[in-house]
């Protein structure tokens, strides 16, 4: 890909050769350390080639392990392999290296196609992004916010000014820790308490639940949750709707669950809450400290407000939707 040489001086290193389902805590830690070293050595930007399936898990983990980076850290993948003439790999790589080399956004980001067309890419914040289609090129969407920027071959257009700016200093804090005995449970109607019990009995120290609606599970599970929290297992609630906050005060269910020790995780995405809990428990056994870490926004995994239009716009090349809505509903 000769175009890459026009963008930057690119040095490459193969850390692993795995499909993304085989990425996990060991790889997060190794990656975070390697990036920390590069930053110290004065690099201007980092690109990480990654499988797309769990790219948002890795992005979340790196956002916590590499705090306050001075340069852009860009994860990139492709939905079609590069042996296919219409592969998105080349354009994604060009976009990602351009972002890493020249953008002013010093955060952990995912860079993938905006629309399915070969037109522009979007830079998504690492803690607010999710793969939303099994095969589409524009599979990544920012959830609960709007993407950070639009990126073309020769231009980066920020969509917001709320981001960390590139710096020349080399100060970065690497916290490469992860507790592997953390699980995520996707709630379904008629879930039985033994699901939770078996996790607890197997020594799990943290559980993230993706609950229904505002953050709910059914009554039969209550005793199991109470038993778990009493045994010192940290349980956090997120929402299956992905968009929106956990609100456990609206219904009795929520209040009952909080009384049993479940902690609402604001508007953290379930996968992000999972990696954050693993990362928090990796650092301390003190559950109050874990709670403090979990609920303190570090990399916009929790946001104070949700833009009214985030759900509607900038989600794959249809700003026209907003114009349309304005026309229909004044």
């Amino acid at each position: 890909m000769p175009e890459l040489a026009d963008v930057c001086n690119l040095a490459t290193e193969k850390l692993f050769a795995v499909f993304s389902e085989n990425m996990g805590p060991r790889q997060y830690i190794e990656l975070a350390k390697a990036i920390g070293k590069e930053i110290k050595n004065g690099i201007d930007g980092i690109v990480i080639g990654h499988g797309t399936d769990t790219m948002h898990h890795t992005a979340g983990a790196l956002a916590f392990m590499i705090q306050n980076p001075p340069v852009p850290i860009v994860l990139v993948g492709s939905q079609r392999s590069s042996d296919r003439p219409s592969s998105d790999a080349a354009l994604n790589l060009i976009h990602a290296t351009t972002a890493a080399a020249t953008s002013d956004i010093a955060e952990v980001m995912v860079c993938m196609f905006g629309p399915t067309s070969d037109e522009y890419g979007l830079l998504h914040r690492g803690t607010r992004v999710r793969k939303m289609h099994s095969s589409y090129r524009s599979t990544f969407r920012t959830i609960g916010d709007i993407p950070l920027a639009m990126i073309e071959r020769d231009r980066i257009t920020p969509l917001t000014d709320a981001y960390n700016r590139r710096r020349t200093d080399r100060e970065v804090k690497i916290t490469p820790f992860f507790e592997e005995r953390v699980a995520m449970v996707y709630y379904y109607p008629n879930m039985q308490p033994d699901i939770i019990d078996s996790l607890v009995d197997n020594g799990y120290r943290g559980i993230v639940i993706a609950g229904t609606g505002l953050g709910h599970v059914n009554k039969p599970v209550y005793p199991a949750i109470e038993r778990a929290t009493k045994k010192g297992v940290a349980i956090y609630m997120t929402v299956q709707t992905l968009w929106g906050y956990v609100h456990m005060f609206v219904y009795d269910t929520g209040r009952d669950l909080m009384a049993r020790g479940i902690v609402p995780a604001e508007n953290m995405l379930p996968e992000v809450a999972y990696v954050k809990l693993g990362w928090a428990l990796g650092q301390t056994d003190d559950l109050d400290e874990v709670r403090r870490i979990m609920l303190t926004p570090i990399a916009s995994e929790i946001t104070e407000r949700e833009p009214y239009n985030g759900y509607l716009i900038y989600q794959g090349g249809v700003p026209e939707v907003e114009a349309f809505l304005k026309k229909v509903h004044k």
Binding site: P85, S86, T116, S117
Partner: peptide
């Protein structure tokens, strides 16, 4: 939809 073909 817009695409470009790239040699492999």
């Amino acid at each position: 939809v817009v695409r470009h073909m790239r040699p492999t």
